[in-house]
Computed example of a mutant assay.
Amino acid sequence: MRVYLPSTLPALARMVEDGELGPAPLTGYAVTPALIEWYASGDTEELEYVALTEAARASLRLLAAATGEAEPAGGGRRVVVAAEVADHAVQASADLGEKGRVRVAEPVPLAKVAAVHVDDEYAVADVTAAVAALPAADKGDDDARFVVDGAEAHELMWYATQEIPDLLGS
């Protein structure tokens, strides 16, 4: 099953160093029966894009949680790791709240990573502003929600796994 795992650049660097994304359990997003039911029309590609978008939103929250931590060059960029995970290791559950949200019970080996999706550097200012606005947006502030939506309007760039070292070096 293709799972989209929210991440950050420091976590991506740790994944490369450790040879896996972990520790488990990991929260990810996938095309689940609940997502298919919620998104009544659309093919698999559209549903995977919805799961990727949800993972990008979760990555924004990871960045917000890491505010104040030292970020490497290129920080302030959302990261989503797309990986092929064995079905038995993925649990979709209604109590996880969001449609498409899953729990991955095992660390994900680097060999199972299909691609990485990362904001281009031109998105950093909008992502940084969105991180700062997130608490107010969560409280219903429409202006803050507009700022968060501005970051979400940026499409993530696609990187093959062999490009990850170059991505981390930039």
Rank of each mutant, 00 (worst) to 15 (best):
V50P: 02
A86E: 15
E46Y: 13
G75P: 03
A89H: 14
Q91C: 04
A64H: 10
V90H: 00
E84K: 13
L62D: 12
P72W: 02
A65S: 15
V79T: 06
D43C: 02
P72V: 14
A70N: 12
G42W: 07
A55F: 00
A70H: 11
Y49D: 07
A82Q: 13
K99S: 15
E46A: 15
A64I: 07
H88G: 04
E45C: 01
E98W: 11
L96A: 06
V81D: 07
Q91K: 14
K99A: 15
A82L: 12
L63S: 10
A56S: 12
E69K: 00
K99L: 13
P72Q: 12
H88E: 13
L96G: 10
A64R: 09
T67Y: 10
T53F: 12
R78K: 06
G68S: 11
V50A: 08
L47Y: 06
L62H: 14
A94I: 07
A92P: 07
A66R: 06
G75L: 09
A89C: 08
G68A: 10
E98F: 08
A55D: 00
V85T: 03
G42A: 11
A70K: 01
L60M: 04
A70P: 13
T53V: 05
A89W: 10
D87S: 05
T67F: 13
G42H: 09
G75V: 04
G42I: 11
L96R: 12
R78T: 00
G76W: 02
A83M: 05
G76Q: 07
T44P: 01
T44L: 10
A86F: 10
A86P: 08
G97K: 05
E98G: 06
E69M: 15
A66G: 08
R78Y: 04
A83Y: 08
E98C: 04
A58G: 13
E45P: 02
G42R: 02
T67G: 11
L60H: 03
G68I: 01
Q91R: 15
S59L: 09
Y49Q: 05
L96Y: 15
R57I: 01
G75D: 09
D43F: 05
A92W: 11
